[in-house]
């Protein structure tokens, strides 16, 4: 499979701190990849730089062979690279339904409302948010907000890569399962690739055939989780003890 999302030598500094130090990574089309690493390893920085929230100090990001380095976040979203945030960013004073309409129409106003409505109702069913369709998003629980945020990302037409930053942090097991099903469904039916930052090793093992480990701003290892979890350098830097 051709690599869909490629970063080369991606570097981001904050003053003297090098948060990302020449990160090179390739994500294939349709792949579900885990991105793990200890706190402060630069995972969120990497996500921010790749998705245009912050500008890199060096290096390049390519999506489908075209450079997207330094583009604005909305331009990157329109090109089919969409992200979610660790703390779900939903529009509190809009209804759940309106929350889904924003990304759809922001990225494609040519297809009309019929497609948007059909897609929204499909996602609301899958995410179990359907009964809350006309509630304001601020009345949702933390987990439901995470689901809504993920669905909002799925609303953007023709997304090729979803980058999810800690989607499973602090939400209850039932919502976690719903979210996993959603991710797998989107992956299967639309062929969307996922890059999932998470500390939830069980989930990562279940849905990500391969993981990338970041340590101190660099890619330290890449491969199947169980293989990587046996590597000495990863264990010392990240897990501190033998995993399993």
């Amino acid at each position: 499979m051709a690599d869909l999302l490629v970063t080369e030598g991606l570097t981001k500094r904050y003053g003297g701190l090098v948060a990302n130090d020449g990160v090179a990574m390739q994500l294939a089309a349709g792949e579900i990849r885990g991105l793990i690493g200890p706190n402060g390893a630069g995972k969120t920085t990497f996500v921010n730089v790749v998705t245009g929230i912050e500008r890199p100090d060096g290096g390049e990001v390519m999506l489908g062979g075209a450079p997207i380095t330094g583009l604005g976040a909305h331009e990157i979203a329109e090109r089919g690279l969409v992200r979610s945030f660790q703390v779900a960013r939903v529009f509190g004073n809009l209804t759940v339904h309106e929350n889904l309409m924003v990304p759809y129409f922001a990225c494609d106003r040519t297809q009309g409302t019929a497609g948007a409505l059909a897609r929204a109702s499909e996602l609301l069913k899958l995410s179990t948010l359907e009964p809350l369709t006309h509630d304001l998003a601020k009345s949702l629980s933390g987990g439901q907000r995470m689901l809504l945020q993920a669905c909002a990302g799925f609303m953007i037409p023709d997304v090729r890569v979803h980058v999810l930053d800690e989607p499973f942090a602090g939400i209850n097991p039932v919502v976690k399962d719903t979210l996993i099903d959603l991710i797998l469904h989107e992956n299967r039916t639309h062929g969307a690739a996922f890059l999932i930052v998470s500390h939830e090793m069980e989930i990562i093992r279940r849905i990500c055939p391969r993981v990338t480990v970041m340590i101190a701003g660099r890619v330290a290892a890449e491969g199947p989780l169980d293989e990587i979890a046996r590597r000495e350098d990863v264990i010392t830097a990240y897990l501190g003890r033998s995993f399993q």
């Binding site: 976040a73 909305h74 979203a77 969409v82 960013r89 990304p103 909002a152 953007i156």
Partner: peptide
């Protein structure tokens, strides 16, 4: 309501 979220939604 949320500028950054709007931006990452493609606005």
């Amino acid at each position: 309501q949320n500028r950054v979220a709007a931006q990452t939604s493609g606005v």
